[in-house]
C-alpha cells in the first residue's frame, strides 16, 4: 500500500467536493439555499458521461454537464426567487428530480467506457519532495482547475467589487437594492453558477476521477456532503477546499486499508469479510455530522456564519431585513 497514492487519490476525489461546495457557497452567499446539489451532480455526471459516449469528446461532455447543472439550478432560481417558494422544499425537489431523471437517462450506460479527460504531470512542481508527486503528478486537468478555482473564488468574494455586491445581496438585500444593485439579477447569476459548478463536480466523477456510470451510486451522497462542508467551512472557499481534500482522503483510505493485512505492524481489523468494514464505511457520514456540529458551534459562538438573508425571499417594497 502506497500512502502517496492514497493521498493523491484524495486530492483527485476532493476536487469533486470542492467544485460542488464552492458552487453552493456562491449560491448561499447570494442568499439562496440550494439543497439540489446531489441531483444537479447526478445530472451533470450522466450528461457528461453520455454526451462523451455519443460524441467521443470528453470536453463536449464537460460542457454538457455544466449546461445541465446550470439549467437545473435555473429552475430552482425561478421557483425560489420569482415565485418565492420555500428554498428547502424546492431544493429537495431538485434532488429528487435530478436523481430520477439521471436514472432514466443513464439507462443502459452501465458497463460502458468513455474517453477520460486528459491527465498530466506539472513539470517543475512535481519534483518538490513529498508534496510534488502527490499533488502534481498524473492528476486530471480538472484537479488543476480546482487548484486555480479556490483562490479565485475566495478573491472574487472577499476582494472584488462584484464580490462585495454578492455579499450585500446575501446579507442585506433591501440595502443592496437601494444602492442600485440588481438583487434578483445577481441571485439568478450565482444560483446558476452554483449549478454549473455542481454539474462540473458530477462530470469530474464520471470523466476524470472514477469514470463510469453506476446509477445513484455514482454520486452516492457527495452532494449532501458538499452542503455539510459549506457549513463547516463557514462559507469560505478556502476552508471548503481544505475540508474537501481532507474528507475525500478518508474514503480512498478505507479502500486502501481493505487491501492490506497489517497496518503499522498490527493485524488489519478492516479486511474484507470482517464485519468492521461496515463501520469503516460509516466514518465519512459520521465525519460530516461531526464537522457540521463543529461548524454550527463555531458559527454560534463567534456570531459569524450563514449569510443573514439566507433562505429568505426578497420582495421589493416589503419590510427589508
Amino acid at each position: 500500500m502506497d500512502l502517496g497514492l492514497i493521498l493523491a487519490g484524495g486530492i483527485a476525489s476532493g476536487t469533486v467536493l470542492l467544485f460542488a461546495a464552492i458552487g453552493e457557497i456562491f449560491a448561499e452567499r447570494a442568499g439562496i439555499l440550494n439543497l439540489g446539489v446531489e441531483g444537479m451532480m447526478l445530472m451533470g455526471a450522466v450528461a457528461g458521461f453520455s454526451t462523451t459516449l455519443t460524441t467521443g469528446n470528453p470536453w463536449i461532455g464537460l460542457v454538457a454537464a455544466m449546461t445541465v447543472g446550470g439549467l437545473l439550478a435555473l429552475l430552482h432560481a425561478v421557483v425560489t426567487i420569482h415565485l418565492r417558494a420555500d428554498q428547502v422544499v424546492s431544493g429537495l425537489a431538485l434532488t429528487f428530480l435530478g436523481t430520477g431523471l439521471a436514472r432514466v437517462l443513464g439507462e443502459g450506460l452501465a458497463n460502458t467506457n468513455v474517453a477520460r479527460l486528459p491527465a498530466f504531470t506539472v513539470p517543475v512542481l512535481s519534483n518538490i519532495p513529498i508534496v510534488g508527486p502527490i499533488v502534481f503528478r498524473d492528476q486530471s486537468v480538472l484537479v488543476y482547475v480546482g487548484f486555480v478555482l479556490v483562490p479565485l473564488a475566495w478573491f472574487w468574494i472577499e476582494g472584488t467589487r462584484p464580490g462585495l455586491h454578492l455579499r450585500a445581496v446575501g446579507e442585506a438585500p433591501a440595502a443592496a437594492d437601494a444602492q442600485g444593485i440588481g438583487v434578483y439579477r445577481l441571485r439568478y447569476a450565482y444560483v446558476v453558477l452554483g449549478g454549473v459548478l455542481a454539474g462540473l463536480a458530477g462530470a469530474t466523477i464520471t470523466l476524470a476521477v472514477a469514470p463510469g456510470w453506476f446509477g445513484d451510486q455514482t454520486v452516492n451522497g457527495r452532494g449532501w456532503i458538499a452542503i455539510g462542508l459549506v457549513i463547516f467551512a463557514r462559507w469560505n472557499p478556502i476552508r471548503a477546499a481544505i475540508g474537501g481534500y481532507l474528507f475525500a482522503t478518508i474514503t480512498p483510505f478505507n479502500l486502501g486499508l481493505q487491501g492490506v493485512d497489517r497496518i503499522l505492524g498490527f493485524e488489519n481489523p478492516f479486511l474484507p469479510g470482517r464485519s468492521a468494514t461496515f463501520f469503516l464505511d460509516m466514518l465519512p457520514y459520521l465525519f460530516v455530522i461531526a464537522v457540521v456540529i463543529l461548524g454550527s458551534r463555531q458559527a454560534a459562538r463567534r456570531r459569524i456564519g450563514a449569510p443573514a438573508a439566507l433562505g429568505i425571499p426578497y420582495v421589493r417594497g416589503e419590510r427589508g431585513r
Binding site: 441531483g39 429552475l75 421557483v79 415565485l83 418565492r84 417558494a85 420555500d86 422544499v89 424546492s90 429537495l92 425537489a93 431538485l94 434532488t95 429528487f96 428530480l97 435530478g98 436523481t99 430520477g100 431523471l101 439521471a102 436514472r103 432514466v104 437517462l105 443513464g106 439507462e107 443502459g108
Partner: peptide, 27 residues
Amino acid sequence: IQPSGVPAMIQGIILFTLIVADVLVRY
C-alpha cells in the same frame, strides 16, 4: 416499466409542480 428510473423521475417532477401549485394558491 422501462426505463427503470421512471417512478423516481415522476416523483421528482410531481414535487416540483406541487411547489409551483402552492405558490399559485398563495399568490
